[in-house]
């Protein structure tokens, strides 16, 4: 199988627009495709499909529970915790876990010499699966509101793919920090979606540099071409980064998207162009069986 991540440094450039349309075209051309919404903070890909819910998995993290009757307030767990998630006042015999800061690393349990620490799972979010025409083909990572980091939920969703498809399309979260890296690190190829504005350009550079560092092949789709200027195209030419496709800015496209409609359904030439792009990627990068 091949995993293709759709990413961008800047938010709102059209990641979900591209991911949902690619997925749709692949299905129409009888590929065993799967769409994985990895933007766990704000997942939206499902809005474009009439999919049936088929399964739900809680994603949890272990957090410590300290038995204060056994605890002798030695403070070793507090010392071991690198996230400042254990608050202790030994003189007053007060010890508390701050769940929001805990990463579930288990260091405190290892530290405790008196077996005063047990662990309990807390929910971070869910991975839900959906089917279209009776085939399981969409996964959504959804972080609970108030949780600090979406990374665990994203990882769980990617694990869930489990070779169940020939082509998996990962709709990545924006940015270039941890959530982005966790998504693209598992992909064989990354499509970066940008727009020809100074902000788009600046964020694209940062994404490209990040992908270079982890040796991920990538290509770029310029969305909303015609707005802004040519700096992005010039940059791609200079850096020898493949320009996969340019999509002209049209108010109608934005309007369709806003109503949860797929452009590839109504614009066959767009559908064909996008299919060609993806076919080329599959041919070139499909057999690398890339593992991180």
């Amino acid at each position: 199988m091949i995993k293709i991540a759709i990413a961008s440094g800047k938010g709102g450039t059209g990641k979900t627009f591209i991911a949902t349309n690619i997925f749709n075209i692949l299905l129409q051309n009888n590929y065993a495709a799967m769409l994985v919404d990895c933007d766990a903070e704000e997942p939206n890909a499902l809005a474009f499909f009439k999919a049936q819910l088929t399964g739900k998995k809680e994603v949890t993290q272990q957090i410590p529970v300290i038995n204060t009757e056994i605890c002798n307030f030695c403070g070793k767990c507090h010392e071991y915790c690198n996230y400042n998630a254990i608050f202790i006042l030994p003189q007053m015999k007060i010890i508390k876990v701050i769940p929001d800061l805990c990463h579930g690393c288990g260091a405190c349990s290892v530290a405790c010499e008196f077996e005063a620490i047990t662990e309990k799972p807390v929910s971070l979010g869910q991975v839900t699966s959906y089917s279209l025409k009776n085939a399981d083909c969409i996964l959504e990572a959804r972080m609970n509101i108030g949780v600090m980091s979406p990374v665990s939920v994203i990882k769980a969703a990617i694990k869930e793919i489990n070779n169940k498809a020939d082509v998996a399309i990962l709709d990545a979260p924006p940015g270039t920090s941890c959530p982005f890296i966790q998504t693209v690190a598992t992909a064989d190829y990354v499509i970066l979606v940008t727009e020809p504005t100074p902000f788009g350009h600046s964020d694209l550079r940062q994404s490209v540099e990040t992908l270079k560092k982890i040796n991920k092949p990538c290509g770029v789709i310029i969305n909303r071409a015609g707005l802004g200027n040519n700096d992005v195209s010039k940059y791609l030419f200079q850096e020898k980064i493949p320009l996969l496709l340019e999509i002209q800015f049209k108010k109608e496209i934005a309007g369709l998207y806003s109503r949860g409609k797929l452009l590839s359904e109504s614009d066959s030439s767009f559908a064909e162009q996008l299919l060609t792009v993806v076919k080329n990627i599959i041919t070139k990068h499909g057999n690398s069986s890339h593992q991180r």
């Binding site: 903070e41 704000e42 972080m143 509101i145 979406p150 924006p174 806003s258």
Partner: peptide
């Protein structure tokens, strides 16, 4: 920043006013 995670929480803590910019799409 975009999203609803930690950096957003840090951006909001202790501020006086929050201005949420949205757009007329389902997302």
């Amino acid at each position: 920043p975009p999203g609803i995670g930690c950096p957003v929480i840090s951006s909001l803590t202790g501020t006086n006013k929050a201005v949420i910019v949205t757009e007329p799409t389902i997302s």
